[in-house]
Nucleic acid binder design. Sequence first.
DNA 1: ATCGGCTCGCGCAA
DNA 2: TGCGCGAAGCCGAT
Length: 463
Amino acid sequence: MPNIESLVNQEDARIELLRGGDIDESAACVLLWISRSQRAYGNLAVNLAVELADKLGLPVVAAFCLTAYPSATLRAYAFMAEGLEDVGHGLAKRKIGWIVRSGEPAEVIPQLAKELNAALIVGDQAPDRTGRGWRTEVAGRISIPMLAVDADVVVPSSLFPKEEWAPRTIRPKIGRVLDDYLTSIPDPVPRRHAQKLKALDLTELLDNLDIDRSVEPSPRFKGGQTVARRELHHFVDHRLATYDTDRNRSDINGSSNLSPYLHFGDISSLEVAFAVRNSDAEAVAIDSYINEVIVQRELTVNFALRNPNYDTFDGIPDWGKTTLARHAGDPRPVIYTRAELEAGRTDDLLWNACQRQMVREGYLPNRLRMYWAKQLPLWTKSAEDAFAIAVALNDRYFIDGRDPSGYAGIAWSIGGRHDRPFPPERPITGLVRRMGMNALKKHFNPQDYIDQWPVETPTEPVQ
DNA sequence: ATCGGCTCGCGCAA
DNA sequence: TGCGCGAAGCCGAT
């Protein structure tokens, strides 16, 4: 009877052994629990499941557990459902079984493992506490081995066991090992094919899920690996060349638009980074984008993994807390309620336009997300309030809400996380760097942007 | 238009 | 222990 320890490379930083032990030789399949990495191709968790299944002479059956996470909206779930349909099609081509069930992962996955007589479970990894909790619970309720593959970063997170301070502390560490990890991903088909397994109707499952249906699906972003890859190649072919050079287009009109897809794992940052690295764009453009999609992004993953307060005010650095505390009593000339903010009814026309794009489209270019978050402390009674409102709106409207990038962005904007102080000390925000029109104007034309997101004029009632 | 200085704390050199 | 330097800024001097 083989044990799992002898079948996997224990030195592989990308693989976490959640439960060890012997493998039952009479088992019927390897269970692949897809959660964070919602894609059939370019997926290292799928590949590990295939590798182990081949060693054991078993087929692979993949499962997804549909459950309503905190602050789940129809917008996010419609996007996710589109992605999951794509997963089903892709896995069929890879001769992997596919099951979608609703319920709590801690119930559903162990139950499924029993039903299918699984030899072991291969899962993926999540940076947020909800996703991490699911894995721990599942591992605690099974009696077979379980592995988790860190498939949604380029450099495995386990190489950064402590909280990193800033881009400059993680950058050299990533640089040292990047060539070991920035590789292409094969799509092996298991030797033993799974029987056709009928998946439940996704729309029906969605209908029965307890989610907030008042936030409508994005009219612009459709989920799925197929669409994600189309976006990636459009970016590489048409916008990457000017990513760093054209000042008027850079990072606002020229952004890659991939964040919703990266959030749901419709595409991996590894595939994105690999495609960019091997494109024929100029080195400055490539380096600039690689810095975004690897260094900055993986810093935010490290933040979520290593700082338990990654989504609250408490997660900001000490110097930020000190300086904000010193200005806690500063008068706020204007205070808006959450409802006024949510409706985009402030006196700042650019901010309102950002809020409208967020509400309608579920997306905002990164730099505007920062401007948006940086204004909030000026208009709320405390920085803590500003933080809480920022997180609430972020999670409610963005397709990629609940993502480490969003939380780290808010912590950077409001509390100076991953940043340094910037004197002179100013009212309310103290030493936390401000962002005003002059800075934004270097990158785009605010008026053009405002015009793109007009206030909807109510239709006149016919009378 | 460009440039230095502003503050803080990490990480490395010594 | 000292020193260089940094996620996307701002202000004032030149």
